[in-house]
Structures are given as structure tokens and as C-alpha cells.
Write a protein that binds this DNA or RNA. Structure first.
Lengths: 204, 204, 204, 204
DNA sequence: AATGAATGAGTTTTCATTCAT
DNA sequence: AATGAATGAAAACTCATTCAT
């Protein structure tokens, strides 16, 4: 049991255990919300005793924070893809189909709403979310600036940033729609979204 | 006992007491969220014992429900104004300045997020919010159809409804932005919003 | 309103109000038990505000006590009837039919059980019930002694009192039976009761 | 950790904890009644925090139910003894001394009254008590029928069952007597009880 | 005499967190 | 490393009782 290998405590075992907890938390938070999910529930889903979780996280808030961190980082990944593309403006337009239908998926918006609502209450959570959002905005700003440069358009940084705010608003707003309008027509909404995005992206 | 006024029992005293509780709840919900706000906290803010609140509301959920109801009804009022205007399409465009800065007000978005998150969890709350949203959508649909008719444009109902979804998404998304991007430039965002709204409103 | 008559406060109006409350209490106690019946419930049944009841009773316990008092006194009335009869032993036997079916009535045993259980907890209530029971026992003892004298039987007071205890036990036990054995055959039980009573009454 | 014993988790530790709670409940229920006994009181008597009790019982009602179940089962044990005896009729007569003095024990009748009163209110409790009572009646019916057969007596089932009802009524009534007549003469009552039981048991 | 608004103490119950093993 | 028994603080809610009117 203690030759030298595997079981010996620290390096990646801890990371694996934390992931195990965060995955369990994701499922619990999704069905019950941050408050509604009890440590007992999470520990059962994680296949780990409640007490043991405290060896990996200081307290429940730390789990929430780590979970939020993990989720706000996901967005960056998406932007990374865009950065690879030749013409980012066109790429964004082309991706609208996929983005819209992604955003309308339940299970996604449930958790995002939970995160946003929590950000509105807990400054600590707000900071995490704001930092990630700022990074995304900046990255997007770079991309778009490049795309505009390709087309020979001058860029007013403040104006472009405002357009980015509205573009993100559209997608984040689309997260809210399925809650309030469960029967919306996803295909038609995709069309309309493209209509709104077009001037934001393709106008000098 | 004085003239005819206040004190003796039922008709509007109850309404006034309920309002007193709902106002207190609004402030507590705003700072602590639905779950975080305790009845003790609310009762203190309402200047009323916790036990007494139960003479006006069956339980805490009933307070939340009444609060949500009150807030989702506010939107209808706004649409009522629009209905008065001669050219609703133009009116919407003209109002963007005000709408955007309204949506960026803190205290508004805090509570709306709370409501949306709660709708994602509690079917009862979801129903309230969905019903109100449906009414607003329908009303808006009427208005826009009329505006389009004035211009001699034909209307594909499904397509128009999808545009409405996106327009609402923009404004609801703008509620989320100040949480994640507290330093955004409201003026510039207003401009960008107009840019996105234009094709949704003014395209055949 | 204040000529001299009626409304002028004290003498019997108070008694009438108290009765009004006690009647209401009887119905509430019957359906909810002493603890389960709230003052609000009682006050509604009495057609009187909760606060006003406190002008006639010091507190809820006083209502319970008065109610118990009222009920334990009822028994005395029944014994009064027997005292009129020429041959009390025979009278008791003759009355078994009626007594048994009385005791099996629901609504009677519910309240009696409540009273007995309360007596087992509250010494104050116990005293009321014990005093009334002692009076009944003594009265019954007199009656039976007279009946035995008529037959020329000598009486060992202690032994006769013990028989009385058992006779009362039979009837009080019959109060319990319908709770535990809701389908019992009342006619057949009457027969069996007579069988058990006979030696207690008619043996030298 | 020592040998094989106690400490580690489930099988009988839970049973032991439940018993610990039920014993505490017995003492609290005895002095304060089901309603009067608070979880705080019970938890103190059980030497366990109130919250912890909820790991063993769903809620207070479940404690009451388990307690009632435990108590109504006790009766069956007594009947089991009788079944062993050669002549059950004679055995019942012989046991009257012991049965009567058992029934007059305080602490027994307190709790039984509580149970009966609770049965009169809560259908769930009523069912437990009725089921146990039915079993006892049936068992007793068997025994007596056998005893009668030994003597060559024919048995009218309904009539015999009615006698059983009365016999049980006598003993259950004797539970009530000490509350209302605390100074009764136990010896003399035993004699009188035998007098009443005799025709119920020994008559064709 | 009468109301019912208002209180506050007390109830059951939940749950994050700790700690002996 | 891992458990889960145990705690204690807080939550929502109820209700007898009081008191201004």
C-alpha cells in the first residue's frame, strides 16, 4: 500500500478529489440551487462522506466559489476557438446557430442564473465573475478589432466595447428567455438574433 | 375614532400592512436574496413582529410570490405607455435611452435576477413570471404589428414573435451586464443597443 | 341602552357568556383535543373575539378546568335519577341497556379520554375529577347499601366499595373499547355487561 | 477498534440509539404527555442533541408512533404466556391477582391514557392501536374457545367476542380508576374483579 | 362590553460544520 | 485518508395573551 506510487497523498489526488466534489456540486446545484443543495446531498452525489469534503474545501461557500470559478472559465475556452479563426467577425456570425441553441439549453441557464444571482449578493462571487467577464470582453475586443482592421475599419475602442456589451447582453438575455417563455421557437429566434448581431459586428 | 379615518379594522388597513411587509421584503430580498432574507430580518425592516406577518401572509413563500407578482406586473405598466403612442415602432426606438438606463439601475437587476433564479427552481414562481411575460409578449406583438401595418409591411407572426424574444433578451441581458461589468459606459451602450434594435424593429 | 334592565352587566349575563364559551370549547375540544384547540378556534365557535374571552376566563387552562368541572358534574345527575327508584339494585340492572349504549357513543368517549388524560398530567384537573368521582362513589355506595338492606344482606363497606370500583371500571372501560375496537357488537356487549354486573350487584 | 465490538456504524448502534430516544420519550411522555413533551426535553433526557434525534426518527410524530407501537406490542407478550397454560380459563382466573395489581400501577396508566387519547385524535395512531387490539382479541378468542371446548361447552363466536370486549373493558377501566380514585383498596378490588370475571369466563 | 392587531416566547426542524475513531 | 455520529445555531411558524381603541 505504500511502495512509493499512487496512494501517496498530495499532488493530483487532491485535484481529482476536488473535481469529484465539484462535479457532484454541479448536479446538485443544478437541481436545487446553491442554497437548496445540502452538504449531505452533495456528499452523497460525490460518493464521499460529508466530513471528508472539508479536507478539500474550507466550507460550503468555498465549494460554491470554486464551482463558479470553474464555470466562468468555460467561457474563455469558447473564445479561444474563435481566436483561431481567420476572420473573427465572420466566424462569430457563422457560429450564431450553435451559440443560440447552446444558450437555450436548460441545465445551462439554470446554473448561470444561479451564478449571476449569487454574484448580485456575494461580493466575493461577484469578483470572480467580473474578473472572468473582463477577460472575455478584452479578448473579444482584440478579436473584433483585428476583424475590423482586416476590413480597413477604424475602431473607437469605447464604442466597440459598448457593442461587445450589447452582444454579450443578447446572449445572456437568451439564457433568460427559456425560463420566461418556455415555448419559444429556437429556429426563428436564431434568425432574429443574427439580425440583431449583424449591425453590431459588421458596421463601421 | 377621530373623523372617519384609519384605525378600525379591515378594508385598506390590511392592504397597507401587506404593502408594509412587501416593501420591507423588497429591501431584504435585495440585499440578501429570497433565501438569505430571514423572517426576522423582514419583520424588523417592516417594524412588525415576525409572528404578526403571518396574519397577512400564509408563509414566507406567499410573501415571495406576492413580491414576484408585484414586480412582474410593473412591466405591463411600461407597455401600457407605449400603446398610447401613435407610431409604436418609432416610440420604442425613441425610448431606448430611457429603457437602457433604467435597466442598468442597480436594485432593479438584483431583484430581477433573484426572481429569474427562483423561477428556475420553483414552478409556482415560474408560472407567475411566465404568465406575465406572455402577456407582455402578446401586447408587444400587437403594438409592433400595428406599427408595421402603418408602414404597409406584411407580418409573419412567428418571425415577429422571434424578434420580440430577441428584443426582450437584449433588455434582460442588459440587466445582467452591470453585475459582471460594473464599469460599463451607459451612454455608449445605449448607442449600441439602438444599433441592435434597429433591424429588429425597422426591417420588413 | 341604560334604562335599568338587561344590559346592566353582572348577574346572569356573565354566566350566559361563560356558557357560550364552554359550549364552543366542547365542540372544539371534541374535534381537536385540549391542546389542539386554539383560542382562535374557540373564539370563532363562540362568536366572540379571542380577547374578550379573557374577560370571562383567566386563561385557556381555566376554560379547560371549567369544562372538565361541567362534565364531571354530569355523572352526578345520572345518579340522582337512580336515587329516586324504589329498588336501586334492580334499577341499575334495568338501566344497563341504556348505559352501555350511552357509553359507546362517540363524542362522549373522545371528551372523557381527553379529560382523563389531562387528569393524569395536571394535578389541578385531577383534583376536580377525583372530587366528582368520590362524590359519585359515595352516592352509589349509599344506594347500593340501601338496596342490599332491602334484601336483608349485610354490607362490608370496603368490599362494597371495591365492587363499585369495578362496576365503574366496566363502564369507563367501555368508553375505551370503541376506539380500539370500532366494529364491536353493541347488543352482544350489553348482554355480556349484564353478565359481569350481576354478581357485583346481586351477590351477598 | 478493540475486538469486534460496538463502535463502528450501523447494525445495532442505530437500534440502541432509537431505544435511547424511546426510553427518554417514555419518561417525558409520562410526565408531560405527547404534546407537552418538547423535543428539547426529550433530547435532554436522551442525552443527545435535539438535532441528532432526527437522524433516527423522521419527526416527532414518528417518535410517538414508534413509542405507541412498542407499547401496544407489550400486551401481546402477556397473552403469549397464557397460551402456554393447559387450561386457559383457569389460568386467566388465577392471574387476576397479578393482572389487577399490574393495571393499577401508575406510570402504566398514564401512558395508556395518553395513547388512547391520541388514538381518538390521530387516525394513524388509532390504526396502530386497533391492529394490536384486534390481534389480542383474536388470540384471546382462540384461547377461550379452547378452554370452553375442554369443558364441552359450545361457543357462540359473537357472544364470546362480546364477553372478551367486556373483560378487556374491565381491565382497561381499571387503568382509569387510580386516576380518579387514588386511594382505592387494591386487594378488595382484586376480589371484586374476580367476581365480575367469573361469569364471563366460566358460564356456558 | 368588545374587538382584533400585535407581541414574544416557544415549537419543530434543518444543516453546515467538527471531531473521535 | 476517511467516516458519520454528533452538535448547535438558526430557520419558519404557531399561539396564548395583552392592550389600545
Amino acid at each position: 500500500m505504500h511502495t512509493t506510487e499512487k496512494k501517496r497523498s498530495d499532488p493530483e489526488r487532491i485535484a481529482s478529489r476536488r473535481k469529484q466534489v465539484l462535479d457532484a456540486a454541479e448536479s446538485c446545484f443544478g437541481s436545487s440551487g446553491f442554497h437548496g443543495a445540502s452538504m449531505a446531498e452533495i456528499s452523497k452525489a460525490a460518493g464521499m462522506s460529508a466530513g471528508h469534503i472539508y479536507n478539500y474545501f474550507d466550507n460550503k461557500d468555498a465549494i460554491i466559489a470554486a464551482f463558479v470559478q470553474q464555470n466562468v472559465e468555460r467561457v474563455s475556452t469558447l473564445l479561444g476557438d474563435l481566436a483561431q479563426r481567420e476572420d473573427p467577425l465572420q466566424a462569430l456570425l457563422d457560429d450564431i446557430d450553435r451559440s443560440v441553441s447552446d444558450n437555450l439549453q436548460p441545465g445551462v441557464w439554470k446554473l448561470l442564473l444561479e451564478i449571476w444571482a449569487q454574484s448580485a449578493r456575494e461580493p466575493g462571487i461577484a469578483k470572480l465573475a467580473q474578473d472572468a467577464d473582463r477577460v472575455s470582453r478584452t479578448e473579444l475586443h482584440c478579436l473584433l478589432k483585428r476583424g475590423r482592421a482586416m476590413r480597413g475599419w477604424a475602431t473607437d475602442d469605447a464604442a466597440l466595447m459598448a457593442r461587445i456589451e450589447v452582444m454579450i447582453a443578447i446572449f445572456q438575455g437568451l439564457h433568460v428567455r427559456p425560463i420566461l417563455s418556455p415555448d419559444l421557437d429556437a429556429r426563428a429566434v436564431t434568425e432574429a438574433t443574427r439580425l440583431a448581431m449583424l449591425p453590431l459586428l459588421m458596421t463601421e
